[in-house]
Amino acid sequence: MPRHSPRARPAPVTDAAPCPCGRDAAYGDCCGPLHRGAAEAPTAERLMRSRYSAFAVGDRDHLLRTWHPRTRPPDLTLDPRLEWVRLEVLAATGGSPFHTEGTVSFRAVYREKGREGALDENSRFLRHDGAWAYLDALDG
């Protein structure tokens, strides 16, 4: 039986591929421009979706760049054993282009060693220098 080594990073996604964030759009029209720094997320939910997609495609730089400096870790290592397979946005408060704070509750489904798991989080976002930034996960 062949041995499978852990993936060093996910296979690159093309601009024409469906966006990992689950919106009905191609990656090149959705999270791709945010990952490349060519656009900024207009809402907290769009930033959260782009951050999920960054986990799915292995874009560590986007994750660090969109993390609020007050809580940003000095470095970030992505787990190559996790395959992010689906995002479900459960609720959002605030976070519009007219707000300075917002929360997004979501479930991120992943696969590890052939088994599915889920990360449930209520994330808090703040504007920093005019752009949305991930601050932290709210308890409870």
Rank of each mutant, 00 (worst) to 15 (best):
L47T: 06
V13P: 12
T71I: 13
V57L: 03
H35C: 09
A41S: 11
C19P: 12
C31G: 08
R65A: 11
R72W: 06
D15T: 07
S53T: 11
D24P: 05
P42K: 15
A44N: 10
D61R: 08
A41D: 06
T71A: 00
D75N: 00
A38C: 14
D24C: 03
L34A: 02
M48H: 10
M48N: 05
G37Q: 14
L64D: 03
D24N: 12
V13E: 06
A39H: 06
C31N: 09
C19G: 10
G58D: 03
A25Y: 01
S53F: 12
T71M: 08
Y27F: 10
V13H: 01
C19V: 11
R60K: 08
L34V: 07
C21E: 12
R51N: 01
T66C: 12
A44D: 06
P74N: 02
L64A: 01
W67A: 09
A17S: 15
A41P: 04
D24Y: 09
Y52M: 09
P74C: 05
P18I: 00
A25V: 12
Y52V: 13
D15V: 02
M48R: 04
R46H: 04
L63F: 04
A17M: 07
T66Q: 04
T43H: 13
Y52L: 04
E45V: 15
R49S: 06
G32C: 09
E40C: 14
R23S: 04
V13Y: 07
D29E: 15
P69L: 00
P42R: 14
C21F: 13
A25D: 15
Y52K: 04
G22F: 02
D29Q: 13
A26V: 10
L34H: 14
L47R: 13
P18R: 10
P73V: 00
R46Y: 02
P74D: 07
P74S: 12
A25W: 08
A25K: 10
A17R: 09
E40A: 15
V13F: 00
M48A: 06
T71H: 07
A56L: 01
P73G: 06
P73Y: 08
G22I: 12
C19F: 03
A38K: 14
R49D: 01
L34M: 02
D15G: 05
R46Q: 15
P69G: 03
S50D: 02
D59K: 01
D75E: 04
F55R: 02
V13G: 09
T14P: 00
G28S: 10
A16R: 12
T14M: 02
W67Y: 07
H35M: 00
R65L: 09
H68Y: 11
Y27I: 08
T43M: 14
E40Y: 15
P20D: 11
R60Y: 09
L64Y: 05
P42A: 06
G22R: 08
T14H: 11
R70T: 07
P20N: 08
L63M: 04
A39E: 14
H68D: 06
L34K: 04
L47H: 01
W67E: 10
C30V: 00
F55S: 01
L47S: 08
D29N: 09
G22V: 11
C19S: 12
P73K: 07
T71Q: 03
L34T: 09
M48Y: 14
R72Q: 03
S50T: 09
G37T: 09
T14G: 15
H35D: 13
R72V: 08
P18E: 04
T43A: 13
A16D: 10
L47V: 13
V13D: 05
V57H: 00
R72Y: 12
A17T: 05
P18W: 08
A16N: 13
A17F: 09
